[in-house]
Design a protein around this nucleic acid. Sequence first.
DNA 1: AATTTGCGCAATCAAATAGTTGCGTTTAAA
DNA 2: TTTAAACGCAACTATTTGATTGCGCAAATT
Lengths: 108, 108
Amino acid sequence: MKTRRDVFQAIADPTRRAIIMLLTVGALTPNAIADHFNSSRQAVSKHLQILTECEIVNQEQQGREIHYHLNADKMKDIEKWLEQFKQLLAKRFEQLDTVLEQLKLNRP
Amino acid sequence: MKTRRDVFQAIADPTRRAIIMLLTVGALTPNAIADHFNSSRQAVSKHLQILTECEIVNQEQQGREIHYHLNADKMKDIEKWLEQFKQLLAKRFEQLDTVLEQLKLNRP
DNA sequence: AATTTGCGCAATCAAATAGTTGCGTTTAAA
DNA sequence: TTTAAACGCAACTATTTGATTGCGCAAATT
């Protein structure tokens, strides 16, 4: 398995989903984030690293602290995919409609 | 990590996302699905197993063939989460708006 | 009846993940 | 200046994942 770094990978983990939610409110440091969970700082740090690689999060150094900002725009990738899916599904139902329509026409 | 079986896990893999897309058009057998990719039947079968456990897909036995149907409803779980996220984000901007509003009021 | 086809299942393997522990570095506080 | 806090990074472990191979069973085909 090649290491994938995309939004879908990012949100696959429940802790990361929680971190994303946390960061919607505002930028936080790894310690601040870890305080909200039962996770250790290092564990959070690893997730932040992945989220950074997925470009869902940016770092901002402030003195000895690093503030992690959410890049909410990246979440649109999920929306885009969902939209594609829904369009395909709609088309499928259109086809079904066509079939049903034809059945109606052929009725005696 | 306890094995999670949720929609987020299901869509984390690109092959599984492709399978989901394929199944929007209609139910297919593992072999039929495998024909659309460079994946082997067994590899596809494993993904189908996961998708089944995630309840994104249902099996329907027809003789010696098994047709895999998409349970499109399950995809709403993703939408729900995205919606939650967007609401949180909106609230954040509301707060920002309040702050900006106050800054304006304090202007000379 | 013999063969082929479609499939699940188990065993196996390499790579990735999630997590921990233990550094070292830089910045801030005493 | 010494000490403490906030990190990143590397090493290490257990667990999961994605994929392959080979087997066996049941349903079609011949």
